[in-house]
């Protein structure tokens, strides 16, 4: 446990509950107003160029469909390495995110490019399986070479107040996933309130998550700006009290460059520049990359581009 200066809040269910329910409540109207206000910021010219390149380098290029094939994953990996074959200055994405059984395929296709392979595990997306199955799922993906594991929390247990069970599951998965990085998906669309989002974020960080992630992308609403704000405040406060920095990954529903830039503005204004790197902030997305590439081509050439000039997947 690396809860730093925090008292040992996870020693039993009662103290964990007392701690999580002792967190200050979220001002819903205030959070939504702040998110709306920050999203009106206008980012232009060189700042926009920087933001687009940074956003590309933060993408976890994702395919999580039942119909995924090794061929599709290889295509995605090729795109991850060279998002815009016509422009070698385009940065690589951060990672490719796939189901566990396709990790080996992705690993082979990515080779030594430096692009990570992230695997979703623990009975993604519902999380409805026994701990044994979840751990086996995780170990499987790590054994196949996954650099990062995206796990889902048991929302049923969380919503019925069995916080210690959720906590212990995350701890167990964290051990099983070493040396891979662990991202914990809160599935905020199912948590009902911002207070719950704040509690779940703290719970995951107390259990040693390396990243907290908004959503699986299978539930709507997925990543929204107010939810991101709450999570960013949680990682900021967590670092202030423990000294440990935790990354944040919004996922699902971020499709346009404008959206992505709004997220970056929010990061900069809430937790500061230290989080503005692929080590601490990621986008879980698939179609977002295409829009970023179109905007990038627009900035480079001065004219609007179209889908005929990028690879569609």
């Amino acid at each position: 446990m690396s809860t730093g200066t925090l008292p040992d809040v996870s020693r039993d269910d009662a103290s964990l509950r007392a701690f999580l329910h002792g967190l200050p409540g979220v001002d819903q109207v205030g959070a939504e107003a702040r998110a709306a206000m920050l999203s009106t910021r206008s980012i232009k010219t060189t700042s926009k160029q920087w933001a687009i390149d940074t956003a590309i380098s933060m993408i976890d290029l994702t395919t999580l469909e039942g119909a995924d094939t090794p061929g599709k994953v290889r295509n995605l990996c090729a795109k991850a390495r060279r998002p815009d074959p016509g422009d070698p200055t385009t940065p690589q994405v951060a990672a490719v995110c796939v189901y566990g059984d396709l990790v080996a395929t992705a690993k082979e296709a990515l080779g030594d490019s430096g692009v990570h392979v992230a695997a979703v595990a623990t009975a993604f997306p519902s999380g409805r399986a026994s701990l044994t199955v979840k751990l086996a799922d995780t170990k499987d993906a790590v054994a196949a070479g996954a650099d990062e594991i995206d796990m889902v929390i048991d929302r049923g247990a969380f919503l019925s107040g069995r916080y210690l069970q959720v906590f212990e599951e995350i701890v167990a998965v964290k051990q099983a996933s070493a040396p891979a990085h662990l991202k914990v998906i809160l599935e905020t669309g199912e948590l009902a309130t911002y207070d719950n989002v704040r509690r779940a974020a703290w719970l995951a960080m107390l259990a040693d998550a390396d990243f907290i992630k908004t959503s699986t992308g299978k539930i709507s609403p997925a990543a929204t700006l107010p939810v991101l704000l709450v999570m960013l405040e949680a990682v900021r406060d967590f670092r202030a009290s423990t000294g440990r920095q935790v990354g944040v990954k919004p996922a699902g529903g971020i499709r346009t460059s404008k959206d992505a830039i709004r997220h970056l503005v929010m990061v900069n204004e809430t937790v500061g520049e230290e989080w503005l790197s692929p080590d601490w902030f990621r986008f879980g997305a698939s179609t977002l990359l295409n829009d970023l590439l179109l905007q990038r081509q627009k900035l480079a050439t001065g004219h609007y581009s179209g889908p005929d000039y990028i690879t569609l997947d």
């Binding site: 004219h303 609007y304 581009s305 179209g306 005929d308 000039y309």
Partner: peptide
């Protein structure tokens, strides 16, 4: 000019 240059027109 924006429409004439637009790649998706």
């Amino acid at each position: 000019p924006w429409l004439a240059e637009h790649r998706d027109v």
